[in-house]
Simulated scan of single mutants.
Amino acid sequence: MRVFIAGATGAIGSKLVPLLLADGHEVFGTTTRPERVAAIDATGAHGLVMDGLDAASVRAAVLEARPDVIVHELTALGGGVSDLKHFDRTFATTNELRTRATDHLLAAGAEVGDVRFIAQSYAGWPYERTGGAVKTEEDPLDPTPTDASKESLAAIRYVEEAATGAGGLALRYGALYGPGQALGRGGEMVTMLEAGKLPLVGSGTGITSFCHTDDAASATAAAVLRGAPGVYNVVDDEPAPVSEWLPALAEAIGAKPPMHVPAWVAKPLIGEHGVSMMTKARGASNAKAKRELGWTPTWPSWREGFRTGLG
């Protein structure tokens, strides 16, 4: 297969390239920076410069590659989300990539004809914050998101509906961790915890589903060949409350246990959305991805992942 990865130097794209090459695919990977093309070429893939927000740039890259599969991994997060209080502001460019860039990629793919489309989405806080603690793909997304996350949730809905409407797949990755991530050695989140600046807010009853970047990539590689159109939660086997995983993370990195802070104290600092993630978020089930993609996570639990997989 000829596989086109939009965002081949990102957290998932960079791990996906060697997996697809090892499977015998011909890979075309994009970057916004010309100086990174050589690094993509060095892997055995074909590096291309592309601006996902420029329709002409996307069209030129896709038509040059003439792929059988397009994988949309474009984000602008840089490994961290530092401002939970102004969540949509942090995600502004990523939200454009989930809307405008999705349209550009689908339009270019339609010119090539009969292209399988796979897009990145997210599992966790977008789910409805009521009902069961662990959600499946059949459960609704949040009809009443926090004010700070409305634009980001709308962009997630957009990319999922556009991808599946075109007969493609939307992969809802869990909270990513691993080398180079905010939740990785030297990353923003780990550094804050080491400095005692990442507290446990309120009851810590918000549920998180994690996904190591290795597993996000392997699930995406599986989706290149398998899986009916639709959405898939790509998460590990063990959704867990913040009250459980945050102290475990502190122990794994040799930090002091996080302090407890009442929600009303934290809200002026991290906003309603940050408090909601800590106290109300829901986890996700990976049963569908295991069943239909034939995928099994190498890191089935964050417990082991935090001990040995942070980098």
Rank of each mutant, 00 (worst) to 15 (best):
G174Q: 08
L176M: 11
Y177P: 14
Y177E: 02
P179H: 12
R185E: 11
G186M: 08
G187N: 03
E188D: 12
T191P: 02
T191N: 13
M192T: 05
E194R: 15
E194M: 09
G196S: 09
L198D: 08
P199T: 00
V201Q: 05
G204T: 12
T205H: 13
S209P: 13
C211N: 08
T213L: 07
D214I: 02
A216R: 04
A217F: 08
S218C: 10
S218A: 15
S218V: 04
T220Y: 11
V224G: 02
V224D: 03
L225Q: 15
R226A: 05
V234D: 08
V234A: 07
V235T: 10
V235M: 10
D236Q: 03
D236N: 08
D237T: 09
P239I: 02
P239D: 02
A240Q: 10
A240L: 05
P241C: 01
V242Y: 01
S243D: 08
S243T: 08
S243R: 15
E244L: 09
E244N: 01
P247M: 01
P247S: 01
E251N: 05
A252Y: 10
I253R: 14
G254Q: 09
G254Y: 09
G254V: 00
K256A: 15
P257G: 05
P258H: 01
P258A: 01
V261L: 15
A263H: 08
A263L: 05
W264I: 01
W264K: 00
V265Y: 02
K267D: 00
K267T: 03
P268L: 04
E272G: 14
